[in-house]
Amino acid sequence: MRRGLIVPVLACLAAATALAATPYARADFKAGNVRGHVQQPAATPRDAHRPSVTGLGQTAHAPIDRSHAVVYIDAAPRQAFDALPAGRVRLDQRNQTFEPHLLAITVGTTVDFPNDDPIFHNVMSLARGNAFDLGRYPRGRSRSVRFDTPGIVPVVCDIHAHMSAYILVFSHPFFAITDDEGRFAIPNIPAGTYTLKVWSELGSADAKRITIADGTTLDVDFEVSQR
């Protein structure tokens, strides 16, 4: 279980909300960007099936892409909360896999969980503050959850143990998921000094202290080492 990781990250995500109440030094909104690259270790096949000894045949599922990471600042200035882009996003269930495997959203966002498989799925999470159980539903049906608490939400299918996904819920918009090459970009961060962090399922990386100056773009690279 990933509680050892989840607890400190949760604390960081919550800290963002707490710091938001602190008056920010700059009255005007000057912003810069941060971009960079996250070097990840090779993914291990943690999505292996539980040995299906009671089964009468093979069950096949698509491999899980665990190569992405989320880069985020651990606390944001007050003005970051004025207008959070809370909308709707999809987390599909297809070929007994959640697609995408990793989502990053702001609080208030609603996630739809459509089932595209010919079998029933039961999406659920026991994450503190974001626990839900959508029950069993068939192909063509979708159920939704609105996430109102910052934190990491491990999502599983209660029927198919090899199905897993992560949703990171932030109380500010300054985060990005790395692309297939590991690159990320977080635009329009209010000028100031922050701690930039990486969340990865495959390991951990040291946080970096960054200072964003108005109109500049900062390059920051991370190397995730395997736990």
Partner: peptide, 16 residues
């Protein structure tokens, strides 16, 4: 919560 909740597998996932 520190107990494993996924099957244990080898490096290439052929044994679980």
């Amino acid at each position: 919560a520190q107990l494993p909740d996924h099957p244990i597998s080898n490096a290439d996932g052929t044994a679980t």
